Simulated assay, not measured.
Amino acid sequence: METRNILKKDERIDQLYSQDVRIIQNPHYFAFSLDAVLLANFVRPNHRQKLKIVDLCAGNGAIGIFLHDKLGGTFTEVELQPQIADMAERTILLNDLQDRYTVVNDDIANVNDYISKDSIDIVLCNPPYFPVTAQSQKNPNKALAIARHEIATDLVTVIQKMSGLLKMNGHGYLVHRPDRLGEILQVCQENRLAPKRIQFIHPKPDRDANILLLEVIKDGRPGGVKVVPSLIVHGADNEYTPAVQELLYGK
């Protein structure tokens, strides 16, 4: 689709060269971060044409769009905020993917009004990471506050909805903060999601991990969790490491 006339005030188009896709961004509302690229990379390839995939807290649809070539089937992007859901819809048009992607503009708490329980093969989520604080409630940018803090949804709701949507043996993928790992694992196990694969992302070689990637299987057998090799984002020179360069720009 022509880029002319598709952008609104303060919007820009960013390209993920490694996947040959373009994403409409607006820093006042929402812009995808490296977290989205990392989660898409963590997802296992599956090219079955009948796959059904749901992206909860989808933002501008970046994670789903990044997976257009890695996963077969159809995607439903669920995003609460109207301005951001509108960006997702126009991003789908920009990449000519409207035959495979649809956007639902509603609270994920209402997702079963649109999608049947126990019907989805893969559920993705990059949720708000941070519990609500007095400071987050006072954030003058409400759109960004909702994207970052558990104002409109929370971890328990995200996990409950992920589990409810997934078929038995369906796969869920979550990006979150390592300091909440204990809580995440507990809530997953309370909701029939067996943790199967974990990756930690470190900002630099000598820094603690600040991003967690998790794969779960609905009603999966207990045990057998794999902690895969960590990924380092920046070297000592503050440049992206070769592994991250490849994720962003391709080989």
Score class of each variant (00 low, 15 high):
Cys57Met: 02
Glu89Pro: 00
Val104Thr: 03
Leu71Ala: 04
Gln49Thr: 15
Arg90Gln: 06
Asp55Leu: 06
Val111Cys: 03
Val123Leu: 07
Ile120Ala: 04
Asp107Asn: 15
Arg90Thr: 02
Leu80Tyr: 10
Leu67Gln: 00
Phe75Leu: 06
Asp96Thr: 10
Thr102Ala: 14
Glu79Pro: 07
Asp99Val: 07
Lys50Arg: 14
Asn46Ile: 01
Val123Tyr: 05
Lys117His: 10
Asp99Asn: 15
Val104Tyr: 09
Lys52Glu: 10
Lys70Trp: 10
His68Leu: 03
Tyr101Gln: 11
Val104Phe: 09
His68Phe: 12
Ser116Phe: 05
Ala109Cys: 09
Leu51Cys: 02
Asn110Asp: 09
Val54Ile: 12
Ile115Lys: 13
Val111Leu: 01
Tyr101Arg: 12
Ser116Val: 01
Asp118Tyr: 10
Val78His: 08
Met87Val: 06
Ile84His: 10
Gly73Ser: 06
Ala62Asp: 03
Val103His: 08
Asn95Thr: 09
Leu93Gln: 14
Ala58Ile: 01
Ile63Glu: 00
Thr74Trp: 05
Ala85Met: 05
Met87Ser: 06
Phe75Arg: 08
Glu77Cys: 14
Glu77Asp: 10
Met87Gln: 07
Gln98Ala: 14
Asp99Gln: 15
Asp86Met: 07
Thr91Ala: 11
Ala62Ser: 08
Asn46Cys: 11
Asn105Ser: 13
Asn105Thr: 11
Asp96Lys: 15
His47Gln: 12
Glu89Asn: 13
Asn112Phe: 15
Asp55Tyr: 08
Arg48Asp: 08
Gly72Thr: 03
Phe75His: 07
Gly73Trp: 01
Leu94Ala: 09
Ile115Cys: 10
Asp96Met: 12
Glu77Ala: 10
Asp69Thr: 13
Ser116Asp: 15
Arg48Lys: 13
Gly61Val: 02
Asn126Gln: 06
Gly59Ser: 05
Gly61Phe: 03
Leu124Glu: 00
Leu71Ser: 08
Gln83Ser: 11
Thr74Val: 03
Gly72Leu: 04
Leu51Trp: 00
Asp99His: 15
Thr102Ile: 01
Gln98Arg: 15
Pro82Arg: 14
Leu93Tyr: 11
Asn112Pro: 10
Lys117Thr: 09
Asp69Ile: 01
Gln83Ala: 14
Leu97Asp: 09
Leu51Val: 09
Asp69Ala: 13
Pro127Glu: 04
Lys52Met: 08
Ile84Val: 13
Cys125Ile: 02
Asn110Cys: 10
Val123Asp: 02
Asp86Ala: 14
Ala62Lys: 04
Val123Asn: 03
Lys70Gly: 12
Gln98Leu: 09
Ala85Ser: 09
Gln98Phe: 10
Ile120Tyr: 02
Ile53Ser: 05
Ala88Phe: 06
Ser116Asn: 14
Leu94Ile: 06
Tyr114His: 15
Leu51Asp: 04
Val104Lys: 11
Asp121Ile: 12
Ile92Val: 06
Asn126Trp: 00
Ile84Tyr: 08
Arg100Glu: 07
Ile63Thr: 07
Thr91Arg: 05
Gly73Arg: 11
Ser119Lys: 11
Ile122Asn: 06
Tyr114Val: 07
Asp113Ser: 14
Lys50Asn: 15
Lys50His: 14
Ala85Cys: 05
Gly64Asn: 01
Gly72Lys: 09
Gly72Glu: 04
Asn95Gln: 08
Met87Arg: 10
Ala62Asn: 07
Thr91Glu: 02
Ala109Gln: 13
Ala88Cys: 13
